[in-house]
């Protein structure tokens, strides 16, 4: 019996990608609507400078949202994201103007993120400690490291590098696309795709020969890398390092991932959702700023929107179930 290749089979990869957009259309629409509103309020957005500025405010949030989402996909979570962002920022600010230069700094930042993430992963997974507690303790250790490296805001980022990343160029936007592309590439590897299986059905995945522990630890390492890179970008933006600059990102990363439809129990959600979630959060903050909301009102709105975004599907589902 010879197998017939059916129409569509040869384009399996792209069709799978298409399927993953389902269920996100609502989110995409909301993001588009907010973007349109923002562009209407602030026509300057539709220029190179406008796009550049906006992308620069968005990029760090996008990175930490991905860092959190990848862990949530495996059924974990990290409360150390903010501290790791700070660490990335201070390492960048102390190495880049030194002997090894910008390239050395990037290597140092990336390596520290990978190592610290992997260590958290090994402790949480190999020793079977709950992720929330391990990363809570890790947040103190990592935050302490950042304080050791740079006890008070300081250090320096070479001016040309700051201009390249956070000047009047859309480099940040390019970076978002680049990171998303690299993620696609990772998800196309067996280890990457295993994330979903390891998160939703670890026992079944283990029996099917998926290296569940390896996939999870790799996720922690990548999460650490994305967090320190976010720190690097922030350092480039501000031109110096600050050992506590990342604090707000822990909670914002969770919020963005959740807005993007990533579930807490593992295996549910997509990275494009998390990125869209971070975009939504970013645009909302910008829109509120332009509408003249005091900065603090943003907190109030943010809290309400997160609850609304999560509760709405629950409520609509309940109403639909009623005959």
């Amino acid at each position: 019996m010879s197998s017939m290749i059916r129409t569509g089979d040869d384009r399996l990869y792209w069709r799978v990608q298409g399927e993953r957009n389902r269920g996100l259309m609502g989110l995409f629409a909301v993001v588009a609507a907010f973007l349109a509103l923002y562009a209407y309020l602030f026509p300057g957005l539709l220029s190179v400078a406008g796009v550049s500025k906006f992308a620069q405010s968005w990029l760090p949030l996008a990175l930490v949202a991905m860092a959190q989402a990848i862990l949530m996909l495996t059924g974990g979570i990290s409360l150390a994201i903010g501290a790791t962002v700070s660490l990335g920022a201070v390492i960048a600010a102390t190495t880049m103007s030194g002997y090894f230069g910008v390239a050395g700094g990037i290597v140092a930042v990336s390596a520290s993120g990978l190592v610290i993430g992997a260590l958290c992963g090994v402790i949480a997974i190999r020793l079977r400690l709950p992720a929330i507690i391990v990363t809570l303790a890790a947040s103190f250790i990592i935050g302490g490291l950042a304080l050791l490296i740079l006890p008070r805001p300081g250090g320096a980022i070479p001016g040309w590098f700051s201009d390249l990343l956070a000047g009047n160029t859309p480099a940040a936007l390019v970076l978002v696309f680049l990171v998303a592309l690299l993620w696609k590439l990772y998800l196309a590897t067996p280890l990457g795709l295993s994330l979903y299986a390891a998160g939703e059905n670890p026992v079944g995945a283990y029996r099917a020969g998926v290296p569940v522990d390896a996939a999870r630890i790799a996720a922690y390492a990548i999460s650490g890398l994305l967090s320190t890179l976010a720190g690097l970008f922030i350092a480039a933006q501000t031109g110096s390092g600050d050992p506590v600059i990342g604090q707000a990102f822990t909670l914002n990363s969770i919020a963005a991932a959740v807005l993007g439809g990533v579930g807490f129990l593992g295996g549910r959600g997509t990275m494009r959702g998390a990125i869209a979630g971070s975009l939504l959060l970013s645009v909302m903050i910008n829109v509120m700023f332009f509408l003249g909301f005091p900065p603090v009102a943003q907190y109030v709105a943010q809290g309400l929107i997160i609850i609304g975004a999560v509760a709405l599907p629950q409520l609509t589902a309940r109403f639909r179930r009623r005959p």
Binding site: V296, Y299, G303
Partner: peptide, 23 residues
């Protein structure tokens, strides 16, 4: 009743309260 994960519900509440407090 809204079946929101406790972490999200309480986190959102914390964010909300923080804003109200500063106001």
């Amino acid at each position: 009743y809204l079946r929101i994960h406790p972490m999200i519900m309480t986190l959102a509440m914390a964010t909300f309260l923080q804003g109200v407090l500063i106001l």
